[in-house]
Design a protein around this nucleic acid. Structure first.
Lengths: 237, 237
DNA sequence: CGAGTATTTGAAGATCATCAACTGTCGTGG
DNA sequence: CCACGACAGTTGATGATCTTCAAATACTCG
């Protein structure tokens, strides 16, 4: 299936764009603020990096000095409690970025859900670029805000919603984040993360998540469900 | 102006500083990045505002075009679910600020826990100031990050901690935020918010919070407890 | 002092967690 | 191509934590 050299395109396997011109997420990332001149410069200095499924892009507590833009794949962001309990605080999809500021101790770990590609912007280059492109810092501020707002929605979910509400909210969120174009209601939404990750995101146990999914399917909220994808019914009441 | 001329200082009642030179939180807020010239200008154009206990500084869904720096008092930040359930997503104490970006629809409501004073920086002025003081935008980015990290800690608390752990974490957090200087262990920590707010922050019911507080007191984790303050035992195990 | 609100306490019940067993899926190799 | 093993996910039975409903008590303010 995942042929490597045979077919020229349309291949499911991770494939990074050859240049920024072809980058699928450029308009959604900080690169959108770069002028043509800066873009050329960035393309020369910026490192691209592939991260194999399960490997960490950054580790809670370890220093980090780059901003990473996710080009392809997905990541889970997670924090640990001393006794080993883990909480997933978010998921990252193409166009999103992490590491907005350099730090001596990252607040969280980022692990690849599948083989992924990222672009690395060391902050010391970024600072120089920002001087010529003021929009870059504005975009970092804006990004920080939307991350914060997403975290607040997550807080509401964990603090006030029932298991069933949490699961439905999550599924609609994923559908919106990586829903392929048009009306996400009828389309199949991929679930690139295992059940345990979803449970750790929702503050539920694996078994409770499984039962809740089964229940939503029986009710019809979920049209179809497989290990790696879901089809939701329209969201109208 | 409230009590203005009579007593020089040491008054418990809300009292806003007469000028930025006397501002207790200046070094902790964006003002720390302003040069003397900008400070003078800011002092002329910036509006100060008092907010009575219970009143909202900004409302979820309503537009907001200013950044507010809290000088004195406290605020709760909250979000509503359609059916009226509310979740408190954070508390704001002197030196903190809200409204990092102008928006057509605030993500949350900010309500005063007690009579409070804030400084308002309309974003259109802020933008002009930022051009001359590049540090301002960096500080906004940094602030966005620390808010995000606090939100992540909150997510871990709600997703993985037991009622008892939540309450203890909360109390230590407040002690650290508004703990008066030295070792917060033996000092009395004020609790400027009612029990219902604490419960809504912790994702617990009022009654569960009350019972958990009683239990922590019996165990000795809490040395003394009153409606408006608490004394914690040292945090070592 | 007294009304109204905030907080605490009690008893019963619901939701979600835990422990355990079972089933499905995927990759490997005979 | 199918069998096998390992892991991911599901289902079942029981129990703990937290919620709910109810009532008592404490505190604040006029």
């Amino acid at each position: 299936m995942s042929a490597s050299a045979s077919s020229p395109v349309a291949c499911q396997a991770p494939q990074r764009p050859a240049s920024c011109d072809l980058c699928a997420v450029r308009e959604r990332s900080i690169c959108a603020d770069l002028g043509p001149r800066e873009l050329v410069e960035v393309e020369k200095t910026m490192a691209r990096r592939s991260v194999a499924k399960g490997r960490a892009l950054m580790q809670e507590g370890e220093p980090n000095d780059s901003l990473y833009v996710l080009v392809q794949g997905g990541f889970r962001l997670l924090k640990h409690l001393e006794d080993g309990r883990r909480q997933i605080t978010g998921f990252i999809f193409p166009g999103d970025f992490v590491g907005v500021r350099p730090t001596g101790a990252s607040a969280y770990t980022a692990e690849a859900l599948e083989d992924s590609f990222v672009c690395c912007f060391p902050h010391r280059f970024l600072e120089a670029i920002a001087e010529r492109c003021p929009g870059v810092k504005d975009r970092l501020i804006a990004r920080g805000q939307t991350e914060y707002h997403k975290a607040q929605d997550h807080i509401v979910l964990l603090g006030k919603k029932t298991a069933e509400e949490r699961v439905e909210t999550f599924l609609r969120m994923v559908a919106k984040s990586i829903g392929h174009g048009g009306d996400s209601a009828v389309t199949e939404t991929p679930l690139p993360m295992p059940r345990q990750d979803i449970a750790d995101y929702l503050g539920l146990r694996l078994e409770t998540l499984s039962r809740t999914l089964a229940s939503l399917k029986k009710q019809g909220t979920i049209r179809a469900l497989s290990r790696r994808s879901v089809v939701l019914a329209a969201s109208c009441e």
